[in-house]
Computed example of a mutant assay.
Amino acid sequence: MAGLWPRIGGGNARKRCADALYRGLMAAALSPEPYESGVVADDLEHRMQMVTIHAALLAWQLPKRPEPALKALPDLLHARVMDGFDAAMREMGVGDASIARKVRGLAEHYYGLGGAVVTALEGDAAALEGALEEILCRNGVAGPEGSAALAAHFAALAGRFREQGSDAFLEGNAPWEPYPATSRPSVAKASGAS
Results as ranks from 00 to 15, higher is better:
residue 149 A to G: 05
residue 89 M to Q: 13
residue 156 A to V: 04
residue 69 A to V: 12
residue 50 M to R: 14
residue 19 D to N: 11
residue 131 A to T: 02
residue 101 R to M: 13
residue 138 R to T: 06
residue 70 L to P: 10
residue 192 G to L: 10
residue 7 R to A: 15
residue 33 E to F: 07
residue 17 C to D: 08
residue 181 A to S: 08
residue 10 G to Q: 08
residue 182 T to M: 01
residue 41 A to Q: 13
residue 187 V to K: 11
residue 76 L to W: 11
residue 164 Q to T: 04
residue 73 L to T: 10
residue 81 V to D: 07
residue 178 P to C: 00
residue 86 D to I: 13
residue 137 C to Q: 15
residue 1 M to H: 13
residue 181 A to C: 01
residue 158 A to L: 08
residue 38 G to R: 11
residue 7 R to C: 13
residue 152 A to L: 08
residue 73 L to G: 00
residue 154 F to P: 07
residue 22 Y to H: 13
residue 16 R to P: 05
residue 108 E to A: 10
residue 31 S to A: 13
residue 169 F to K: 06
residue 19 D to Q: 12
residue 137 C to V: 13
residue 141 V to C: 09
residue 170 L to Q: 08
residue 40 V to N: 10
residue 1 M to R: 15
residue 174 A to N: 06
residue 83 D to N: 03
residue 1 M to I: 15
residue 56 A to W: 02
residue 171 E to M: 13
residue 87 A to W: 04
residue 112 G to W: 05
residue 83 D to A: 03
residue 140 G to A: 05
residue 58 L to K: 00
residue 11 G to W: 04
residue 150 L to Q: 07
residue 159 G to E: 04
residue 64 K to C: 05
residue 151 A to S: 06
residue 165 G to V: 01
residue 37 S to F: 05
residue 134 E to W: 00
residue 149 A to P: 06
residue 59 A to R: 05
residue 83 D to C: 05
residue 58 L to R: 04
residue 50 M to H: 02
residue 21 L to P: 05
residue 187 V to I: 12
residue 95 G to Q: 14
residue 84 G to P: 06
residue 150 L to V: 00
residue 98 S to H: 14
residue 53 I to P: 09
residue 67 E to Y: 05
residue 153 H to F: 01
residue 170 L to P: 03
residue 41 A to V: 13
residue 193 A to H: 09
residue 188 A to S: 08
residue 34 P to C: 03
residue 39 V to S: 10
residue 108 E to G: 03
residue 39 V to F: 05
residue 15 K to R: 09
residue 91 E to N: 15
residue 117 V to Q: 07
residue 125 A to P: 03
residue 30 L to I: 09
residue 150 L to P: 01
residue 143 G to E: 11
residue 174 A to T: 08
residue 85 F to K: 07
residue 92 M to T: 14
residue 74 P to L: 07
residue 47 R to S: 11
residue 91 E to H: 14
residue 51 V to R: 14
residue 141 V to P: 04
residue 86 D to H: 04
residue 34 P to I: 09
residue 87 A to Y: 02
residue 169 F to I: 12
residue 64 K to P: 10
residue 45 E to K: 15
residue 177 E to V: 04
residue 69 A to S: 12
residue 184 R to H: 07
residue 189 K to R: 13
residue 80 R to T: 13
